[in-house]
Amino acid sequence: MQRTPLGSRHRITTAGFSILAFLLLCGLSIASMVIGGGDIGIPESIRFLLDGGGDSHLTMVMVDLRLPRTLVALLAGAALGLAGCLLQSATRNPLAETGLLGVNAGAALGVVAGITFLATDGALAVLGFALLGAFTASGAVLLIAAGSRARLSPLRLILAGVALSATFRGLSSFILMSSAATYDSYRFWVLGSLSGVTLEQVVWVGPALGVGVVITVLLTRPLGALGLGDDVASALGHSPKRTRAYTTIAVTLLTGAAVSLCGPIGFLGLLAPFAARALVGPRLGAQLALSAVAGAAIMIVADLGARLVLAPYEAPVSVLLAAVGGPLLILIVRSSRMLSLRVPGGAA
């Protein structure tokens, strides 16, 4: 009896997971289009998807409301899943989350400062403020972490991110305390929601997402080598400092774009990579691909829950994710097996 080589079995398993994940994502996307908390039922939504017919109200709900938020759920979820996987791989820390680099806090400060000092709170303006704040925060983290001749280590990155996050949150709180009007506009964004997003906003952040994905693809081999240790990565011709710097840029582009669209969504950057590692093991390329799919799927499920749990009102997506992410984080912390990042060859 001929045995299947181990590598072939891995490829078959990955291909099987990829097909199942793609089918699941298609099913969830359709569910996101046909299920909602308004007066448009599932039968009317399905008929619209099949033949495109219907009155102006149905068209408005399907095209102007449900389609943009479905696209944003797919793009933002995939971006946060990729960013979380990149960050955990670069820092070799399975609990690393996208908020660690100060991107979320920087985006929040950008929104607060823009609304307060420029007196504008339109959707595209908030989007621009959040992106600018995210990029500024990430640049500051890189400058601080690489401020000396010492190499850009994971610890230096995380410490710089945590320090700047605390500073940005303090500045945001100070501005909010002095401006009630700013707080009224900011509090809806900071809760995290996909309600009210438009196709124009998706087009706005498209370039940032595209560049982030391209950098991610180019980082697959260097990050895989980095998982074996800095010395091994250097021996294989990959600079650990340069790899972590490019990783930070990719994480900023992906997270900044996602946060600017739907607010600071927590735990998704932790949940998606954890699910990917559990399914495909230590292979970084498969982890990245499945993290993107898992992030998109989790975001769509959370958005569906947000629409239905308090119907006809909406619950914040970030609250539902926190309700799931909190217990899972406790489970990971209490499990020594889950708390390790396995890499090929057995290195942790």
Rank of each mutant, 00 (worst) to 15 (best):
D184A: 13
G36K: 08
R244K: 11
R69D: 03
L341C: 05
S185V: 00
R169N: 12
T247N: 04
A323T: 13
E314C: 11
R169V: 14
L268N: 10
A108S: 15
D230E: 15
T247G: 13
G212D: 03
A15H: 06
H57D: 07
R69C: 10
T248G: 15
L109W: 02
L50H: 08
V213D: 01
Y246V: 14
S179A: 11
S89W: 00
L321A: 00
V103Q: 02
V72P: 06
G227T: 06
R283V: 12
R69F: 09
T136M: 15
P316I: 06
L339H: 11
F267R: 01
S234L: 14
G36D: 10
S8A: 14
A289C: 12
R151D: 13
Y183F: 15
L80K: 05
A208V: 04
G102V: 08
V197I: 14
L118R: 06
L86K: 02
L86H: 05
A322R: 00
A130L: 04
W204V: 14
P273S: 03
L152Y: 06
S335M: 10
F274E: 02
V319C: 05
C85F: 01
G281A: 05
L142E: 00
S195Y: 12
T198I: 01
T98C: 07
M60V: 11
A348Y: 11
T120Y: 12
G38N: 14
A160P: 02
M1E: 07
V309N: 01
A257F: 13
V197A: 03
C85Y: 04
A146Y: 00
